[in-house]
């Protein structure tokens, strides 16, 4: 059986709209998860440096556990497994909301935060210790020293790895389709099963992901050259 290509299918009409809707969901879930994972990752990293044993231990187990288990399993756990862990009243409220989306955001946030915390920690280690000591000597508290002196410098150092974590997050967001979030991959799969034109649908979805990645890395390149005056 020869395969009949029908490219019109994915750029217009019902299926074009489906892909566009999927793209919007992908962008929404990615943007929200990026913001939250950056916050959570910073908190976890700072906990590691507090010199309070319990917090250090908590932070270390958090990063080790979530970095070393597959995202897909984490997604299933948050979506199907959380019912047994959380109180009933919380669940009721959660399920009335868009729980699929929320579970997707939680999984992506927690997973990526573990990586960001590690990147940030190596960024902080690259800053001489005397900086923290000097800021403490000036009368700043630990958190003030972190917030005003150490973190701003560390973030500047880790911008490249941070961006690649964000790009990974956008790509990883394709996994949330397994719990029924209607993102770009979900829609491509839907079109495949409704029309059997998987080739066109997956090509379109791949090109969209690729454009997002290339746009972001292109923008970083320009930022590096123009603003930081790095490179050639």
């Amino acid at each position: 059986m020869a395969y009949q290509f029908d490219w019109g299918l994915v750029v217009s009409g019902e299926y074009g709209v489906m892909l566009a809707d999927g793209l919007v969901t992908t962008l929404k879930i990615s943007a929200l998860s990026i913001a939250l994972s950056l916050t959570l990752g910073t908190i976890v990293c700072v906990m590691r440096l507090t010199k309070v044993k319990a917090l250090e231990w908590l932070s270390a187990s958090f990063t080790e556990f979530f970095r070393n288990t597959p995202l897909l399993v984490q997604i299933f756990f948050w979506y199907f497994g959380s019912a047994a862990v959380l109180p009933v009243s919380w669940n009721k409220w959660l399920y009335a909301q868009d729980f699929e989306f929320a579970a997707g955001v939680i999984s992506l946030t927690v997973y990526t935060a573990a990586f960001i915390a590690e990147d940030l920690r190596s960024g902080i280690y690259a800053i001489p210790k005397t900086q923290l000591e000097a800021s403490r000597a000036c009368g700043l508290s630990f958190l003030q020293a972190m917030g005003y002196v150490i973190l701003p410098q560390a973030f500047r150092i880790i911008i490249p790895p941070l961006i690649s974590q964000f790009l990974n997050l956008i790509k990883n967001s394709s996994l949330v389709m397994t719990i029924g979030v209607m993102d770009l991959t979900y829609m491509a799969r839907q079109i495949e099963s409704q029309t059997f034109h998987g080739f066109e649908a997956f090509t379109a979805a791949t090109l969209i992901y690729l454009s997002i990645s290339l746009l972001v890395s292109g923008a970083i390149q320009i930022y590096n050259v123009r603003v930081l005056r790095l490179g050639r």
Binding site: F80, A83, N91, Y95, F99, E100, T178, I179, G180, Q190
Partner: peptide, 18 residues
């Protein structure tokens, strides 16, 4: 309509009230 990989997953979602 929320579509899962299999029906038992959809049923689990019903049991849990999702």
């Amino acid at each position: 309509i929320i579509s899962f990989e299999t029906y038992p997953e959809a049923f689990l979602a019903l049991k849990q009230g999702k």
